[in-house]
Design a protein around this nucleic acid. Sequence first.
DNA 1: CATGAAAGAATGAGCAG
DNA 2: CTGCTCATTCTTTCATG
Lengths: 149, 149
Amino acid sequence: MELDETDREILRILQSDARTPFSEIARRIDMSSATVHDRVGRMEDAGVIEGYHAKIDPRSVGLGTSAFVGLRIEQGREDDALDRLREIEGVQEIHLTTGEWDVMLRLTVEDTDALREVMFEEVSRIKGFSRSQTMVVLATDLEEAALSI
Amino acid sequence: MELDETDREILRILQSDARTPFSEIARRIDMSSATVHDRVGRMEDAGVIEGYHAKIDPRSVGLGTSAFVGLRIEQGREDDALDRLREIEGVQEIHLTTGEWDVMLRLTVEDTDALREVMFEEVSRIKGFSRSQTMVVLATDLEEAALSI
DNA sequence: CATGAAAGAATGAGCAG
DNA sequence: CTGCTCATTCTTTCATG
């Protein structure tokens, strides 16, 4: 889908506050709210807008510990191993990467004890990984939700 | 702030669709929309809800390449180096971690050429980093926006 | 936590350039 | 083809019990 500057402006607004009323967006971009409605609908249908999500402070809901986990995967076992990773609670992201690791996980769990449990009782038990490294997040200095559109 | 089961239910709904009308949330949790309004307001004020963001497909806006970058930082140079990282366009996340790397970046850029440019023209020029490794994301198998509340 | 009322917003049809 | 107007319905918001 082709996006013009008006679409991009709408995306910027919805990225920074997804609950902005269409009428308010319309005011800011100087168009009618019906037009905003149309354009947003088209971008949703085209998959440009994948969804709208509240960002919750993890600590407030008892998820105070986060980590990156690099994994080396044995040839031929990729699919099954990934399927099993996907089912582990706390596994927030799974990326396939070049470089030192084949798979990079992002974990979000209660505390370091829960992290140990996920790693030793769940991840380590999956066949197909030959090596792993856990990088515990000590602090997050920047976490920008918005893309530079 | 103390969250009860009703608050958590509201959070789950807003995590999965931040544009769900309060009136609809009210129907689902069997309370009045005024109560939902109150509770959401209190969670916003308390910082439990940090914001509402549209999730945009990066490819649709020409940001097709993503990478993790591990960095080793020299003692005493932390603050200045982080300040300069924060200003680089394409740096989406900055985490301080234990393990092989002191800093883990998440980059989102146009293509591999833009990635090379960010790494060689921007990141590499910052004093204070002794070593780096770039892990290009080949595919993202799972990217769960919602926490398991 | 609910009710009720006023203001505001979403939504879709039909129309104009 | 794109955006607007207009009318209906639904939602937000807040004062009050």
